[in-house]
Amino acid sequence: MKILTVAEMAIREMVRRRAVLALLLALPLAFYLVRRGDQVGQSIRFLLIGLAWAVSTAALFASGTSRPIEPRLRLSGYASHHLYLGRLAAMWLLGIVVAAPFFALVAIDHGDQVRLGAVALAMLFAVTVAAPFGLLIGALVPRELEGTLLLLVVVGLQMMIDPADALTKVTPFWSSREIATYAVDHTGDEYLTRGLVHGLAFTILATAVVALLSTLRLRVRLRAATSA
């Protein structure tokens, strides 16, 4: 109940920022259109990075908006896990809603050339990883400008790094890239499996670090009186 209330209010906060919603949609669309003349795979990979970037940025800002209010919520009966899980659920839902029209776009544009189910899975994993990653940056770097720049560094690295480089496996959105390769290039199942494992592991790890940092930051340092 408490998690749902936090999620509901986080979504309400976000959807009332209409310019933010427009930009959330514009970013993946721009990435997709810019590469649409290239190979199909490149446009879909860039779409996935744009989607992940948009969702992680939304999560980063949601984290920053809530940061000054969370102490009050903590004192009003919420545990720290209500707060970060509620926000995470909200960002996941928002990400899926943003991803849905892009899936329709790919289906119309390239539906006969790609594995559509795997494209949907790649989008789902882009959103799944991006939400806790944005919250993680928000938890590690409390100031929004620094957080935004850090996110830019990570996404820029993700876009420019040579896919053959071993470093690529530690980038957060490698999972959706691997699943996209499976979807677009019709490779063997190993790409799909690697992508799923990486995505799940990164999501769990990022969520665990967010949980740890939130619990530490929002701990209540009071001694309860013993009953007389």
Partner: peptide
């Protein structure tokens, strides 16, 4: 309120707490 750790000393609370911060206690878009 238990939101900051003192360098020395202790706070004991008996009962439920209500806290009104000086600012930034509300969401702008709600």
């Amino acid at each position: 309120a238990g939101l900051l750790t003192p360098d020395a000393g202790e706070v004991m609370l008996d009962g439920r707490l209500g806290y009104c911060p000086q600012d930034a206690g509300t969401y702008d878009f709600l």
